[in-house]
Design a protein around this nucleic acid. Structure first.
Ligand SMILES: [Mn+2]
Ligand SMILES: [Mn+2]
Ligand SMILES: [Zn+2]
Ligand SMILES: [Zn+2]
Lengths: 137, 137
DNA sequence: AAAAAAATGCACTTCTGTTGCATGGCAACT
DNA sequence: AGTTGCCATGCAACAGAAGTGCATTTTTTT
């Protein structure tokens, strides 16, 4: 617990009660979560506060957004050496068509892509949809 | 003009006036368009009709959705040999951070990705963001 | 303790996508 | 031609998520 406080402070984020709760929730999740997920997890908390908490976390490099194509933005904790701030960390994301959960495959980076002349890549997002390891067993 | 009628009929879509207009608009666009774009292009047309027109076009393999991460769905005409229906046509999409337009790079397919054990890929979406050929000149 | 800054909570707005239902137009059938 | 039925269209309303403004509370600083 204390270690989370120290971590948040190292990221220049004040460790309020709400932020600790959200961080713990994200840490215990092994999949990406929507604002709605978090809202449901803490029924008494206000959506705006959670929204701004995630925004703060994102700005400080604690979480990154995950756009898995479902239409609602998800969030996941950044790994230790995550490059989400500068140029983005180009790992891919997997969305399970069965359990509808989205996972960061942080070890799997997006391969080199060659583009037509004149196109300059700055960022990219690769989402794979299919059956996850839990559902394919 | 008549050729469009014949094309739509070959796709089992009745060539109504509205559908012809939408098709022509999509054909003259060389970038993906949102429902809102089309709505603005024909100010007098009803949003629902356009919405259902696109839905019909999509079901009949005339257009495919493009999810470029901007939060609003876009649509683009399918190419001649597009495999959007079965398993999807895995070409990549480019979103320009300058002009905000999204282009189908139909010649550029998503490369083979190897996944961790237990994960089964069924579909995928790769969006590259950066500067397009018109804006990089 | 007082002042300043930051976080929280409530209300409300916007935007996109979506559906229900009534109406209109076209086409096949009698 | 008249009737019937199907499909497209238009209007209205709804749902979900994202985002903003402002008042209030909590925390930090002086
Ligand atoms: Mn991720
Ligand atoms: Mn495309
Ligand atoms: Zn699964
Ligand atoms: Zn551009």
């Amino acid at each position: 617990m204390d270690t989370i406080v120290i971590f948040l402070e190292s990221k220049k984020v004040r460790p309020t009660a709400m932020r600790l709760l959200v961080y713990k929730y994200m840490a215990q999740s092994n999949v990406a979560r929507t604002l709605g997920d978090i809202e449901n997890a803490f029924a008494k908390a206000d959506r705006t506060t959670l929204y701004r908490t995630l925004k703060t976390f994102e700005e400080k490099g604690i979480v990154h957004q995950v756009d898995d194509g479902t239409g609602t933005i998800k969030y996941a904790l950044c790994e230790a050496g995550c490059n989400c701030d500068i140029g983005r960390d180009l790992h891919l994301h997997f969305h399970c068509n069965n359990c509808r959960e989205t996972t960061c495959l942080t070890e799997h980076k997006i391969p080199q892509i060659n583009l037509p002349d004149g196109y300059i890549a700055e960022d990219m997002n690769l989402v794979i949809k299919g059956i996850c390891e839990h559902c394919s067993g």
